[in-house]
Design a protein around this nucleic acid. Structure first.
Lengths: 257, 257
DNA sequence: GTCATCCTAAGGTCAGACCACGGCGTACGG
DNA sequence: CCGTACGCCGTGGTCTGACCTTAGGATGAC
């Protein structure tokens, strides 16, 4: 059906005759790329939604008129982009995934490790965001939110007495805090900053001993301010709290240079 | 060398006999995934840096003891993650590249559309971010930044007289504004919030010249405040400016429900 | 010296095969 | 009658070996 080296005509639809206008860049590059774009478009348009199952690899081959290798490479890219999840076995296949911030976070980590962005910049972005979100949280935090935040504080205290304060708990608190703004875009951003932040903090902790107890106290005070719906107090608290972290990250970054 | 269906022994190393202890989880999942992790680790450790060239596909096959298909799938994933760039032809191959924040931004856009996050939420996230960034911009904006912002205002005026004020110009102004904070993480986030796809979400017919003219005036006033390094004035201006947008979006969203 | 041509190493694609996984139906045993 | 065990078969995962296209660089003619 398809011959090696003969891209499917439908795939690029370059005008071979009859058009007098500019021949637009025909460098089709990769066939798998075309497939990726098609699927991604369908997802962005909402014509494919989370949970939907793409046709099987072999069926996609026929559909696109390409070999299985090509289809598989396309699926691999979609999977790497977090758009589909591939399950094997009967009833397997490529399923459009439920959205997750994990991959974006990983991407940011990569950005940092390849020096496209510095940890200082990420920390600063985090400050901007978490500080700006305080008013929203004050306005919208429910009793459940507050209980959950206090719970994390309790667990942090427990962890502290057992001398191992996991940074994860701090990160969890901040994520939960932002989540209390009840805005999914905001939540997503903060979640994606989760992984990079942990990494920077680990590095910071190597350089200087951690300050666990102090941080937890501030967390608790912040929840108190939220409970009182006291925007100014909460903002001030968050500001000093974040600034200390930022300073630590900044110090290690400078020392690292 | 390797037989079909016979994964390289080194890959899983499951003890088939003689070991009485726990057989540790052997589900290696995918071989290509292992390769991806290895390369990614090398990059994160800094043992591979931007510009380095990985061995050719055929050489990697030998090195890992797998087929070319598998190696290619791994490279495809690395490429999709922006970690390597693949060049064809003589002197071609996979080159380690500093991932652009563009790719991560794309991921954010995908995430937002996949989670079907509403325009209201996106706008609110914008408010948080762009408002919080004002102090940074006041502090760091260069003369070039200011000139560029004024230029966009001029072009907006021109577009307005020809009665078509494109949302694109507004988006351009806002991204350029955030860019003046000279923090690439912030820039990335704001850019992704202004992605074309999301803008189309905001169906609000900005066409109304009244709105347009008003907006451009505010843009101009904002640049003025930035020039004076007047944080408070700038923040106030940005606040009213964004709030109007938010109200408009909110109104259409409500009408849409 | 300059240009056109060929060479060659690299990625891109194909076809067909086999294996591992896993849901589901069926057949067997209780 | 019910429950379990086995096996079918569709699905992704991998391998092989071949061919094509691309694009530097070498080689030769002018």
């Amino acid at each position: 059906m398809t011959m090696p080296g003969t891209p499917p005509a439908a795939a690029h639809g370059v005008a071979t005759a009859g058009t007098g206008d500019l021949l637009s860049r025909v460098s089709i590059g990769r066939i798998s790329e075309v497939i990726v774009d098609q699927v991604r478009l369908l997802i962005r348009q909402g014509r494919l939604v989370a949970g939907d199952r793409l046709p099987s690899e072999r069926e996609l081959c026929e559909r696109f008129g390409v070999s299985r290798v090509t289809v598989r490479e396309a699926l691999r890219v979609l999977e790497a982009n977090g758009l589909v999840e591939i399950r094997v076995g009967a009833r397997g296949g490529a399923f459009v995934t439920a959205p997750s911030s994990r991959l974006v976070g990983e991407g940011i980590v990569d950005l940092i490790s390849l020096a496209s962005i510095t940890a200082v910049e990420v920390t600063e972005a985090r400050m901007v965001f978490e500080l700006g979100v305080v008013p929203l949280v004050c306005e919208r935090a429910t009793e459940e939110d507050i209980a959950a935040l206090y719970d994390i504080c309790d667990r942090s205290d427990a962890a502290l007495t057992s001398e191992a304060y996991p940074l994860e708990l701090s990160a969890e608190w901040h994520t939960r805090f932002a989540g209390s703004a009840h805005n999914r875009a905001v939540t997503m951003f903060v979640e994606s900053l989760h992984a990079p932040l942990l990494r920077s903090l680990e590095r910071a902790r190597e350089a200087a001993p951690a300050h666990g107890r102090h941080g937890v106290e501030e967390h608790r005070a912040l929840v108190g301010a939220i409970t009182q719906r006291d925007v100014e107090a909460a903002t001030a608290l968050m500001n000093t709290h974040l600034r200390r972290t930022a300073d630590r990250v900044g110090a290690t970054a400078v020392a690292h240079d």
